[in-house]
């Protein structure tokens, strides 16, 4: 199978068709396509299109979550090939978590799925994550990016606590920091010393890519 078939993945993601995506992934792998190529040329452009259409108000949550389901299904199949020794070359590593005191993780998981689908290795620390957990994860996984999420105004201030803690541990310069959540904006991100603010999953992916140049 050639390049054209990998691009079929793009349409499948946009349609949000999980069954078709799983079949197509298997076929593409069988035909000798590299996992990274499937991600780069199939899944990622599809997710970008879905993210752009969502941001533009053309797509809504059903389309967004269906694309997320497709990404999960594809990534799962591709990940199973790793065990066979056909390793995926992850682009970079991202550590993500919702900050301490906040138990909201819908946005977090959406960002995780989007980044995973785009070929990043994602260490998802989940919700209610304290500064020490971020620091331990940075030491262990040596990520390029640390992402923090918060839904509540009462918890978003904890992002600064984490950034200060990374600073004190001498790790701040080793990572780029991106923050997200409905009560945040670019100015808030700058004020607390983050490198970027992601408005939603699609924007988060774009910011991650631009931070890593």
């Amino acid at each position: 199978m050639g390049e054209l078939d990998v691009r079929q993945m793009n349409d499948v993601v946009i349609k949000g068709d999980v069954t078709a995506a799983a079949c197509l992934t298997e076929e593409l792998l069988k035909a000798g396509n590299d996992a990274a190529v499937i991600v780069e040329n199939g899944l990622l452009p599809g997710l970008r299109t879905v993210g752009d259409k969502y941001a533009a108000g053309e797509f809504f949550l059903p389309e967004l979550f269906s694309a997320g389901e497709v990404a999960k299904a594809v990534v799962e199949i591709l990940a199973s090939t790793v065990k066979k020794g056909d390793a995926i070359a992850y682009k970079r590593t991202v550590v993500l978590g919702t900050v301490s005191g906040d138990v909201h993780d819908i946005g977090l998981n959406l960002v995780a799925a989007t980044l995973q689908g785009a070929g990043y290795k994602v260490i998802n620390l989940g919700k209610d994550t304290i500064a020490e957990e971020y620091i331990d994860a940075v030491k262990e996984h040596k990520p390029d990016i640390v992402g923090m999420s918060a839904l509540l105004t009462a918890t978003m201030s904890y992002m600064k606590t984490v950034i200060d803690a990374l600073e004190e541990s001498g790790l701040r310069d080793k990572v780029k920091i991106i923050v997200g959540g409905p009560s945040l904006d670019d100015a808030y991100a700058r004020n607390i010393g983050a490198d970027a603010y992601g408005r939603d999953a699609g924007d988060g992916l774009r910011k991650v890519e631009s931070l890593l140049g």
Partner: peptide
Amino acid sequence: GLDRWMYNLKN
């Protein structure tokens, strides 16, 4: 779950 509810609405 919001994601499954939305997924079901579409699919």
